[in-house]
Design a protein around this nucleic acid. Sequence first.
DNA 1: ATATTTTAGTGAACAGTGTTTACTTTTTGA
DNA 2: TCAAAAAGTAAACACTGTTCACTAAAATAT
Lengths: 217, 217
Amino acid sequence: MTVTVSSPAERRRNKIRARILSAAERVFAREGAEGLSIRRLAENIDYSPAAIYKYFKSKDELVDELKETFFELILENVNRIADTSTPFAERARDCVATYVQIATDKPYHYAAAFAGESATQAPVDGEPGFAQSKKGQAFMVLSGMISEGVEIGAFRSDIDPTLAAKSIWASMHGLAMMIVHIPTYPAFKVEQATMTRNDFILYHADQVIRGLEAHHG
Amino acid sequence: MTVTVSSPAERRRNKIRARILSAAERVFAREGAEGLSIRRLAENIDYSPAAIYKYFKSKDELVDELKETFFELILENVNRIADTSTPFAERARDCVATYVQIATDKPYHYAAAFAGESATQAPVDGEPGFAQSKKGQAFMVLSGMISEGVEIGAFRSDIDPTLAAKSIWASMHGLAMMIVHIPTYPAFKVEQATMTRNDFILYHADQVIRGLEAHHG
DNA sequence: ATATTTTAGTGAACAGTGTTTACTTTTTGA
DNA sequence: TCAAAAAGTAAACACTGTTCACTAAAATAT
C-alpha cells in the first residue's frame, strides 16, 4: 500500500477527471468514438467544451484511457480463468472463449483498442513497453498457457510458444472482430437454436486449439 | 456479349464517374476513408465539392464502390488459386495465405470493407444477397474447398463445411486485421530474417488448416 | 432549327467536428 | 491577505459531409 500523498486539490481534480471519463464511457459504449463528441460530452457534465482540454490533451488521449481500462477488464478475466485448477484443455478453451466474449460485449471498445494505434500504446511484442501494457500482459498469459501445454505433452513438442501465441491471438482477434463488425455473425438462424453465438465461440476456440495438439482422438 | 445500349451522354457520365472513383482510389489507398475528403477529391479533379453529389449520393456510397471493387480483386485471386491443379494441402494453404496477403496489401480497403457495414452490403451467410456479393462468393470458395478436403479424407469426416468455413474465415480475418492495424505484426526482428511476415502468414495458414485435419504426421 | 426539358456544375450556406486563444473567475499555498 | 496557479469559458479557426438555389450547357422533342 502506497501512502496517498494527494492534496485536496489533486483529489478534486482526479474526481472531475473520473467524472469526465465515466460520462465518456457511457456514450462510448453505446455509440463508439464517432458518437462521442467533445461538445456532447461537455454538455453532459455541464462544462464548456474547452474545459475538457484542461483534463485531457486531446480526444485521442481521453479515448486511449477508455481503451486501456477496457483491456484491464479483459486481462483480469483471462487471468482469473488461467489461474483456475480445471483441466488444461478446458482451461485453455475458456480463456480463448472469454477473450472473445468480453470483446464482443463491448464492441466499440474492442474495435477501438486495435484501430488507429495511438502513440501512447505499445501494440506488439518486440516494441518497447509492450510487456507493461495490458495487451502485452494478456499476450503473456496466452503464451504461458501454450508453454504449459507443450510441457505436459498436450501440444506438439516443436511448437514455439511465442510464435504460436501470435497465431492463436490472431484467430481469436478474428472472430472477435467479425462479431464486432457483423453483429449477426455467424448468422445461424437463432430460432432453430442448433447453435448459439456462444456455442460458435466455443467451437472456434476448439478448432484453434486443435491446431496445436499433438494427436487427435 | 450484351449490346452496349449506352448513349453518348451515358458514356460521358460513366467516364467522369470513373475519373472520380480513380482519384478517390488513389487517395483512399494511401490515407483511408478519413483522409479522403469530398473537398480534397473535388479539388483533385477540378470540380466543386457539390459536383461529386451529382454522381454519388453520399461519400459512403462512393467508398462502398471502392470496397466492392477491392473484394472483386480478392475473389479473383483466390479463385485463380482454387482452380489450380496443385495438391490439395498446398492449394488450400495458398488460398488462405493469398487472402491475407491481398488484404494487407491494401490495408485501408480491407479494414473499411468490414468496418461500418453500410446498408448496401450484405455481410454474412443467412442474409439476403450474401451469395451474390463478392464477399459471399469468396466465402463459397472457402467452404467448397473444405468440402473437398472432407471428401478426399484430408479433413475429419464430422466437419460441417459451412460451419468450419466460418471459423477459418474468422482466423484469416484475424491475422489480416492484426497486420492492418499493427503494421509491425508479428513484429519479429526483420534483420534476423528468421521469419518474414510472409513466412508467418504461411505458418498461420498451416496452423488454421491443421485444426481441420483428420490426423497428424 | 427552335423551343423545351433535363442534366452538369457551382457558390454559399448549414450543421457538425476537434482544437486554440485570450480572457475571467475561482481556488490554492505561502 | 495576496500573489500565483489552476479552472472554466466564449469566441473563433479550420476542418468535415451535405443541401439548396441558381446558372450554364447539353439532350430531346416539336
